[in-house]
C-alpha cells in the first residue's frame, strides 16, 4: 500500500505565487495541497486541515511569517508542526535567524516551479529523519 499523501499548507499573500505553487504541487499524487492567502487564514483552517507540513512566506502584510509561525505553534497540539519559510533573503544569518524561530528549513525565492515538488519531498525526508 502506498503511504498516505503528504498534507501541505502553503501560505503566501501574493496571488501570482499562489498560482505557481498550485501549479507546481497540485498534480503530484503524493501531495495534498491547501493554499492560504494570509497568516490569519492559515490559523483559521489549520485545526480542520491538519497539515503535515506548512510552507510560509516571510514577508506578508498584516501578520508576517514569523508571527504566523509563533501563533501556529501556539495552537493546541501543534507545537511540533513542521514549518518551513519561503523567502528571498537567504543570507546565512537570515536563515539562522529563521531557524532559531523554529522553522525546519528555508526555501529560497525565486524557486524553479518545475523543481519545487522534488524540493519539498527532500525537505520532508529531512524532517522525517530528523
Amino acid at each position: 500500500m502506498p503511504p498516505p499523501p503528504l498534507k501541505i499548507m502553503y501560505v503566501d499573500d501574493e496571488a501570482d505565487i499562489r498560482t505557481i505553487v498550485q501549479f507546481a504541487l497540485e498534480d503530484e499524487e503524493d501531495f495534498v495541497l491547501k493554499i492560504c492567502a494570509s497568516g490569519q487564514e492559515a490559523l483559521d483552517t489549520v485545526a480542520d486541515y491538519r497539515p503535515d507540513l506548512v510552507l510560509l512566506d516571510v514577508m506578508m502584510p498584516g501578520m508576517d511569517g514569523p508571527t504566523a509561525l509563533q501563533r501556529l505553534h501556539a495552537q493546541p497540539g501543534l507545537g511540533q508542526l513542521p514549518i518551513a519559510f519561503v523567502t528571498a533573503k537567504v543570507q546565512p544569518q537570515e536563515v539562522a535567524h529563521l531557524k532559531a524561530l523554529g522553522a525546519v528549513d528555508v526555501i529560497a525565492k525565486p524557486f524553479d516551479p518545475m523543481a519545487l515538488a522534488d524540493h519539498v519531498r527532500s525537505l520532508w525526508e529531512g524532517v522525517r529523519h530528523d
Binding site: D12, E14, D16, I17, I20, D57, M59, P61, A88, P110
Partner: peptide
C-alpha cells in the same frame, strides 16, 4: 512599496530573474 515587494517576490519565479532582482 507593496507593488515593488509583490514584483520582487514573483518575477523571478516566473522566469524574470533580473526584473525580480531589480524590483528587490
Amino acid at each position: 512599496i507593496r507593488l515593488a515587494h509583490s514584483l520582487a517576490g514573483s518575477a523571478g519565479t516566473f522566469g524574470y530573474r533580473r526584473l525580480g532582482d531589480k524590483a528587490r
